[in-house]
Design a protein around this nucleic acid. Sequence first.
DNA 1: CAGATCGTTTGACAGTCGTCATACTAGAGC
DNA 2: GCTCTAGTATGACGACTGTCAAACGATCTG
Lengths: 116, 116
Amino acid sequence: MARYLAEPDAVGIKFVEVMRALADPVRLRMLLVLADGEYHPCWPEEFLVGVHKSTLSHHFRVLREAGITRTRLEGRNYFVQLRREDLDARFPGLLDAVLGGARELDVTDAPDAADV
Amino acid sequence: MARYLAEPDAVGIKFVEVMRALADPVRLRMLLVLADGEYHPCWPEEFLVGVHKSTLSHHFRVLREAGITRTRLEGRNYFVQLRREDLDARFPGLLDAVLGGARELDVTDAPDAADV
DNA sequence: CAGATCGTTTGACAGTCGTCATACTAGAGC
DNA sequence: GCTCTAGTATGACGACTGTCAAACGATCTG
C-alpha cells in the first residue's frame, strides 16, 4: 500500500539543485526537524510556525525533487525522511556540514535575537 | 596601497547567505578556480566562458558580501581569495563538501555530456 | 596631461521563487 | 455510499535574481 512520491534516483541528484533546495531558511529548518527523527509524521500543526500548508507542501516538494528527502504515502499519512545514505554517498560531508550551519540559524533567525 | 573591498567580519557571516551564494552554477565554478590557487589574478579572459564582465563582477560581489571571498585591490589589479579560515571556523566541513560537489558539476554541466 | 584599460556601477528586462488563497483528490470512518 | 479530513495542485502576485548593455571611475602608460 505504501506508495512513494516521485524522486530522482541517487545518481540523478544534481549538486546545484541540492544547494538551491538548501538555500532557504524555511527548508533549512525543515531539514533540522527531519534530521532529528528518522521518519516524521507529517505536518503536525507546529511543524513550522507561520507558514501556510500549501507553502509547506511546496517546500517538501522542492526537497524531494532535489533528492534530499523521500516521501512515503501510507493511506492518508505522509512520512518524510532524509536520504542520508544517498546524499552522503554523492556528496560526502555536505549534509552534516549543512545541518551544523542550519543549527546556528535556529538561533539567529529569531527576530528579537537580532542586533541586541 | 592595498585596499580591501567591503566584506562581513567572520561572525557576521550568515549561513543562509553563504548557501544562497553557493547555490549558483557560475559561482560554484568560480569557487573551484579560487580553491585552486590561493590568490588569483583577476578576470583572466578565460576565467569563465560566456559570461559578461559585469555579470562576473556581480557574482564576485555576491561571494564577497556573503563572506566567502576577500578581494584586495592593488593599484589596478584585483586579487580574490577564499576566506577558508573564517568559513571553516564558522561552518566546519562545509567548504570542502561544497568543493567536492562542485567538482562533479564541472563534468555534468557540459551541455553535450548530458543524457548520453 | 591625455589616452587607454580594467573592473565597477547603474539601469533594464526576463525568468524564477516564495507565499498565499482556493479548488481538488483520495483515503478513513460512520 | 456519504462526509470529513489531510495534503496536493493550480493560479496569482510581489519580490528577487542573473544577465547584458552602457556609462563611469580610477589607474597605468606614453
